[in-house]
C-alpha cells in the first residue's frame, strides 16, 4: 500500500532561518495523524511543503505517491490553510462553487449539508465573515469534494466548542471511510480524541511519533486514596509502578505508571472511603517530551 505521505530527510530553510530540518515521516492510508508543536515549530512549513506552496531545500517528499508539484493530485487533497483569508464582495456560496468546479466537481447538496452541520451562513459576502465563520467556510471547502487526503492546519482555531465537536465527528467519518487526515494543532487535547498517531515537532525537528493508544497506556496517573483511619506507609512502599508516594494520616497520594493493579490490591486491605484517579493527562506527557528534549540540549551546551 502506498503511503499517503512519504517524507525522507525533508528540509526547508528560509535563507538562513530554519523552517524544518530532516523530516522523515510516513503517513499510512486510513489514519488520522495529529501534528503537534508550539507556534513556529515547523508545522505550517511541513504542510506548505506538502501542498507545493513552498519548495524543499533538501530531501524528498511524495504525496499520494506523486511529487507535490503535480497539479492533478491536488484534486484528491482537501486543504485548510492555517491562516485562511477570504475577501471581497463575493458570497461564500459562489466562492465555494468556484473552488468546487476547479477541483472537478462536488456532489450536489454536499455544500449545503456541511454548512448545516457546521451552522455556517453561505449568503454573507466573504469580507463580512467573522473569524469563526471564515474557519467554517475553510472547513467546508476542504471537506466538500470528499478528498482522499485532508491536510488541515490548525482546523479548530476560532471554532466554538459545539462546532469543534461536529468537526471531530466529520474527521471520524473520514477515517471510517478509509481516507486519511493530517491535522496540526498546538494543543494536544484538540486532536488526541481523533488521532491514531501524533507527531511532535519542536524547533523544526520531529522529536517523537507516538501511537495515541500507547501514549495513553504509558500515561502517568495521579491517584489519591482516603481511608477510615491512619494507614502504615510500609503497606504501600515498593509497589510496582508506584512513585512519589506520600502517606499523611488516613490519606495516600501517589502517581502510577501503567496498571493500577498492585496499588488497588494493597489498598484493599484497609477500608477505602474515597478514591480519586485523574484521567491520564496527555498534555503532561507532551510537555515531558519537551522538557526532556530541553534538558538534553542543556547538557549538550557545555560539551
Amino acid at each position: 500500500m502506498t503511503a499517503v505521505v512519504r517524507a525522507e530527510g525533508l528540509s526547508k530553510y528560509y535563507g538562513r532561518r530554519r523552517g524544518l530540518e530532516d523530516l522523515t515521516l510516513d503517513i499510512q492510508p486510513g489514519e488520522v495523524f495529529g501534528y503537534l508543536g508550539p507556534n513556529g515549530a515547523g508545522k505550517t512549513t511541513t504542510i506548505r511543503l506538502l501542498m507545493d506552496l513552498i519548495r524543499p531545500t533538501g530531501g524528498r517528499v511524495r504525496v499520494l505517491g506523486a511529487p507535490p508539484g503535480e497539479a492533478a493530485i491536488r484534486a484528491r487533497i482537501g486543504y485548510l490553510p492555517g491562516d485562511l483569508v477570504l475577501e471581497g464582495r463575493e458570497r461564500a456560496r459562489d466562492y465555494l462553487a468556484f473552488l468546487g468546479r476547479m477541483r472537478g466537481g462536488v456532489p450536489p447538496g454536499r455544500v449545503a449539508e456541511l454548512a448545516e452541520r457546521l451552522d455556517a451562513d453561505l449568503s454573507v459576502p466573504m469580507r463580512k465573515l467573522s473569524k469563526g465563520n471564515r474557519q467554517k467556510i475553510g472547513l467546508i471547502q476542504a471537506f466538500m469534494h470528499e478528498p482522499e487526503f485532508l491536510i488541515l492546519d490548525e482546523p479548530t482555531s476560532g471554532l466554538d466548542p459545539l462546532v469543534q465537536q461536529e468537526f471531530l465527528a466529520m474527521v471520524r467519518e473520514v477515517r471510517a471511510s478509509g481516507r486519511t487526515v493530517l491535522m496540526s494543532s498546538h494543543v494536544l487535547a484538540e486532536v488526541e480524541h481523533v488521532s491514531d498517531r501524533v507527531g511532535i515537532v519542536r524547533s523544526g525537528r520531529l522529536v517523537a511519533v507516538e501511537n495515541v493508544a500507547a501514549l495513553r497506556e504509558k500515561a502517568v496517573r495521579r491517584v489519591e486514596l482516603h481511608f477510615d483511619g491512619p494507614v502504615p506507609r510500609e503497606a504501600f512502599e515498593g509497589l510496582p509502578g508506584v512513585r512519589d508516594l506520600r502517606v499523611e494520616g488516613a490519606g495516600v497520594r501517589c502517581t502510577i505508571d501503567g496498571r493500577p493493579d498492585a496499588l488497588i490490591k494493597a489498598a484493599a486491605r484497609f477500608t477505602v472511603v474515597h478514591l480519586v484517579s485523574a484521567e491520564p493527562d496527555l498534555e503532561e506527557i507532551f510537555l515531558t517530551y519537551y522538557s526532556e528534549e530541553g534538558a538534553h540540549h542543556d547538557h549538550q551546551v557545555p560539551a
Binding site: 497539479a71 487533497i77 486543504y79 485562511l84 475577501e87 476547479m102
Partner: peptide, 14 residues
Amino acid sequence: EAGTLELVVTLPVE
C-alpha cells in the same frame, strides 16, 4: 500579500 492566493495555488491547476 492579502493571503487569498494560497487556496488558488493549491487548486489542481499548474
